[in-house]
Design a protein around this nucleic acid. Sequence first.
DNA 1: GTCTATATTTGGATAGAC
DNA 2: GTCTATCCAAATATAGAC
Lengths: 219, 219
Amino acid sequence: MSADAASGTAPRIGPARPRSRRARGAAGARRPVYDVASLLAVAVAEFNTRGYDATSMEDLSRAAGITKSSFYHHVSGKEELLRAALERSLDGLFAILDERHATSGRPVDRLRYIVRRQVEVLQAELPYVTLLLRVRGNTETERWALERRRSFDAAIAELVREAAGAGQVRADVDPAVAAKLLSGTVNSIVEWYRPGRPGADALPEDVVRTVFEGVLARD
Amino acid sequence: MSADAASGTAPRIGPARPRSRRARGAAGARRPVYDVASLLAVAVAEFNTRGYDATSMEDLSRAAGITKSSFYHHVSGKEELLRAALERSLDGLFAILDERHATSGRPVDRLRYIVRRQVEVLQAELPYVTLLLRVRGNTETERWALERRRSFDAAIAELVREAAGAGQVRADVDPAVAAKLLSGTVNSIVEWYRPGRPGADALPEDVVRTVFEGVLARD
DNA sequence: GTCTATATTTGGATAGAC
DNA sequence: GTCTATCCAAATATAGAC
């Protein structure tokens, strides 16, 4: 899966990079060394390091080990890459809302499930989610992504409101504020989580416990 | 205070902007229409809207209602503005750590105090703190700011570790993880908080309660 | 598919008149 | 203090050879 290449360990390879020219299947099918997906992984890693706006096509092509012109042979420009990356990330997040445990049960239990899954998706799709969370809204693509994000957050907020109405969430904090703090906590993980660290498997549950029960020791 | 001008309501005024040519004090002192502080407020608002890298000097001068050349008469370039903004933000945050209630008492109580104050500083210095939290590390100035931020976060993490050692913070979550979630929650507020909203005064305590006791209703 | 060369635009920054 | 004019570098993107 290309998520691997999009991580910190992007294949930074010089111009003389060795490679198998092509891979032939049983039917003689040819697979190009670079498809859009693999260039996307390289590009997203660069975007996350420098920021989307500060990353030039020159930076991207250098990171891929080819010239700018060659890079343009594969993609129409920066924005196509951005759109593909944001789409992947948003699709992953929205899919959670359709899962079984997200659609039935007590509001607070559905909320707990969604938070756990959101952390899992964030871990699995880290570079793509990271990029999504840094979008500012300068282009049409970015505004489209912001709109979908708002819609996702609104679904969470509605669930918090329901849970509060059912007395399952504390009543002394505005549910809208609680929802924003909850989403903010989960999203902030992209700023420090790196895959392969010890404790990565425990993170989703750690986050659920911390968010729902707080950091204080029980007395 | 210029924090006001740096908010969403920046003085977007056209070329024919009316203004008093100068203000004379009792001693006949002259005050320029634009000093560095007021241009900084305008610039930071632009940086936060479009992102620092996506904001050109042309954008900044247009927002200030003067030409690029005139803008350069006041400041040496984008980076000077960035540095001044980040400095202001970092100074505000670090000052918290020297306050009385941050230096004495039980670790958990110091922590609670710092979180509350951090939210208050974030509210008071919103545009500046927002900019700080979005810095990527492309220039020397940005790396300097990231370094100071890391140092601030490390102070919080150490306090969480102490509180955990004293049994005041839950033991089933790694204190380092808890500290990152705590900082992430507070920092995420810049993404949605806007001054002058109802409930702004209650926010610091709402955040403290939510972070320390969780979102669940007490049974 | 990849390259070199180049067209075109934008951005940072300065010179010098008023 | 502000302006117009301009320089230079960098960025997006394309043309066309191999």
